[in-house]
Amino acid sequence: MKVSLSINQQDVQVEVPAYRTLIDLLRAKGFWSVKHGCEDGQCGSCSVIVDGRAVHSCSRLAAQVEGKSVTTYEGFRSDSRYTSLKEALMNLVDLDCGYCIPGMMVSIMALLEANPEPPEEDVKDALRGSRCFCKATLNDLSNVMEAIDKIRGKW
């Protein structure tokens, strides 16, 4: 079946079998930041933004994003404003491998898109769906909140 969508603001038309998941479509297109993780909708490694909302791409068929706008981590990776956020997340999880970082970045970016000044509770809620496979638990969020302030030019 044919699916038309936008990936990182580029219009794309693809021919996919009905059973193809969004994660497999994106990785086949070279968006390697979208990672296979638990394959159970629990870890957030496969997170992408669909029409402004963070979702798991492992639990969504490619056919479900017909006509929608998909943003992966590659969509804002080169934006220097987010460097501080990436660094803060790397500190947050006391980085060993970095596998979970793109998914966490995507979760927070979706949050910031909806609310540029989120309270810490909302940031926690956004990150609750992401799991760091190295350390499992997230530490103090103050670095992330500082990074969000930096993005807003308030720090």
């Binding site: 909708g41 629990q42 957030g44 997170s47 963070a54 639990s59 969504r60 979760s107 809620d125 769906g129």
Partner: peptide, 10 residues
């Protein structure tokens, strides 16, 4: 219903 906002969004 879910700890994950990604699940609740879907």
């Amino acid at each position: 219903t879910s700890h994950s906002i990604m699940v609740r969004n879907t």
